[in-house]
């Protein structure tokens, strides 16, 4: 059963408010280490997760994983507590922002390694006879890691039930994708026989539709496939330093998934969702800091 559109918007706002709050907490000196936010990429997380079976499917996220985590679990409290280093955090403060684990959801702060691990998990579930789709989330920066090509090869060779999700956000930390990668990233997986679907990652309905179709194919045993989402990181890599061209950011800001989704429901419903999720996040943070 597809979730109503208002639920998708609600989840995207929950992610956005949570991450804005985390950055705010960081600037107040309440967060140690670092926070990588996914502002601008909420439609990727929410669209993909809305196409999966959250009870059985497997997710392996990365250093920019808050959105994936919240779209999977809706556990704002566990995430914020984890980032704040509190015992009530989802990994009791050991993991922090980049190392989360909850049910079938895993993250790690290492680029590329998780892709092979996800292929292994997919094969394990397939071997057990479980009809599961395993999803590693990677960014365009991760295409610089050799480990992913070993994983692509084995996934295709052994027909692992994997849906690779690429969030092409144009930057690896401070370096533009075009300064790092030769050729077209969209075509790389195809050479392993992995079909690639390129979609506008700012449009949550398009993401959901494509992810639903690909997941069904993977689930039906047709082998791994890749969902390649064109998106943009509206915020800095982590807390501050952002030397990207302001006009470029402003250009993409017009395509903020939260703006693009505005017309999908009534103005009143949209305003209510925005307001309710803001209060929800604020209340959780107030309780955690009390």
């Amino acid at each position: 059963m597809a979730e109503p559109i208002s639920d998708l918007i609600r989840q995207m706002w929950l992610i956005r408010h949570t991450e804005v709050a985390l950055l705010d907490l960081f600037s107040q000196g309440r967060v140690r280490g670092t926070v990588h936010t996914c502002q601008g990429q909420e439609a990727c997380a929410v669209g993909v997760l809305s196409a999966l079976n959250k009870d059985t499917d497997i997710l392996f996220s990365n250093h920019r994983g808050h959105g994936h985590y919240l779209a999977y679990s809706a556990d704002v409290k566990g995430l914020v507590a984890e980032v704040l280093g509190l015992p009530s955090g989802v990994c009791q403060g050991i993991g922090g922002s980049q190392h989360l684990q909850y049910k079938n959801f895993y993250t790690n702060g290492i680029q590329g390694a998780g892709v092979a691990i996800t292929v292994g998990m997919a094969l394990a579930e397939q071997y057990k006879g479980n009809n599961v789709v395993a999803v590693p989330f990677i960014g365009d920066g991760t295409f610089g890691e050799g480990a992913i090509y070993e994983a692509f090869n084995l996934a295709a060779l052994w027909r692992a039930p994997v849906m690779f999700v690429v969030e092409f956000n144009h930057y690896a930390q401070s370096t533009s994708s075009y300064m790092q990668h030769a050729g077209d990233l969209r075509t790389r997986a195809s050479s392993f026989g992995i079909p690639v679907t390129v979609i506008d990652g700012m449009d949550v309905l398009q993401v959901r539709a494509a992810a639903t179709e690909i997941a069904a194919s993977v689930r039906a045993g047709k082998g791994p496939a890749m969902l390649f989402l064109e998106t943009y990181r509206l915020g800095p890599h982590s807390k501050g330093d952002d030397f990207r061209d302001k006009d470029e950011i402003e250009h993409h800001r017009k395509r903020d998934p939260l703006i693009l989704s505005q017309h999908l429901i009534s103005a009143q419903d949209y305003a209510d969702i925005k307001q309710q999720t803001a209060s929800e996040v604020q209340q959780i943070i107030t309780e955690l800091l009390a």
């Binding site: 497997i58 895993y106 390694a113 892709v115 092979a116 691990i117 996800t118 292929v119 292994g120 998990m121 997919a122 094969l123 394990a124 579930e125 071997y127 057990k128 050799g146 480990a147 070993e150 994983a151 090869n153 084995l154 060779l157 052994w158």
Partner: peptide, 24 residues
Amino acid sequence: LATPISESAIVGLATGMALRGFRP
């Protein structure tokens, strides 16, 4: 399972299998 020459993936896949209940 006979693998290609991909040591990193061999252990990566085996780690995934171990996480999901096997003893690779």
